[in-house]
Write a protein that binds this DNA or RNA. Structure first.
Lengths: 180, 180
DNA sequence: TTCGTCATGTAATGGGTTACATGATTAC
DNA sequence: GTAATCATGTAACCCATTACATGACGAA
């Protein structure tokens, strides 16, 4: 939510739509959690509300446009700077990646590498399991192998991204040092 | 749970481990929901409990081994026969596929086809969205394209599975008609 | 005029995890 | 002897969905 509101101020209804296209149909967020959350962030001083009712004559129902306060931007920056394991587990990696454009290059690399080793661990566990047991039916086997190939693909993809990132850091390393 | 207990009777602790390897580390089930669920199914007459305390001398703590009753097997068969949309959405497709060995060939094909068209729909929606909007940063674009390729791969995989299934039905079509 | 979409919100419900309680067994 | 795993269970808590309430606007 902070990430989207940083790109541009939005009202709740529009914010939800964008969240849902961003996060995919799975993990879609409902009004029942969106509005209370906005309220809370408002109370915490992370957001500022701007009731756009009067604006531009008699425009539809009054929509409440939210934008980040200075504190909200600060909080977003903190969260984007966080490069710990919580950044590369299944729940959050997608979201973190979606806001890579607002993330520092060195944090980007750390997250990509963390994600890759996480997947490699998983791959190792599954393929170890596959080696020990043999009495699996065709379908379980098929599922396992397909899963393994998917992980491999993901790992390769991450590898390419990491290479690209490293190349661009090497090309102009000023950016990282300047921000110190 | 019914599917695993049909393969072999198990006690709760072991059942949980198998569920977690089957479902993956994500969506892992906890004791807090496993044991009450077993209890409920026992009360519903789907399972029979067998306290294996006395068996084989002084074996560890008494473990309660559950197995399917006739009613439980019936329920499992009902659920495996169900070929509706609920069988091919993200939540359940994996589980349904894992028990394909116990599923009728025609239901298998229906589920695979349902899953495939579900993914094709999704693919279409995403790529339509990609065509309209242009102002996306490198990373969002990268994520979108990688997602698209993943879906394509999945669709191809399903296509191969469907072809194999159809071939084996054509080779010995007695099975489907015999069971009428 | 009715339906679909836009738009904001609240309250109850549900159900799964977390945390706790207990205790036996194996390995170091 | 002590830590880790095996093994079963309960109760509180969290938090998101669901369902409901309200209302305006555009299109058929």
């Amino acid at each position: 939510m902070l990430g989207l509101l940083h790109e541009s101020p939005l009202h709740g209804y529009e914010l939800r739509k964008r969240l849902n296209t961003l996060l995919g149909p799975l993990r879609a967020i409902s009004y029942g959690s969106l509005y209370p959350c906005l309220k809370e962030m408002l109370a915490d001083g992370l957001l500022a509300a701007d009731d756009a009712a009067s604006e531009s004559g008699a425009g539809r129902r009054s929509r409440i446009v939210y934008k980040l306060t200075a504190e909200g931007k600060e909080r977003l920056q903190e969260q984007l700077a966080e490069g710990g394991p919580s950044a590369w587990d299944d729940d959050s990696f997608g979201v973190r990646f979606a806001f890579f454009a607002q993330t520092d290059a060195d944090v980007r690399i750390k997250i990509l590498e963390g994600r890759r080793s996480r997947l490699e661990e998983r791959r190792e566990k599954v393929s170890a399991l596959a080696r020990t047991r043999d009495k699996l039916d065709r379908y379980t086997l098929e599922l396992q192998q397909h899963g393994l190939e998917s992980v491999d693909r993901e790992v390769r993809w991450l590898g390419e991204l990491i290479a690209t990132e490293r190349a661009s850091v090497a090309a102009r390393p000023r950016r990282t040092t300047t921000n110190k």
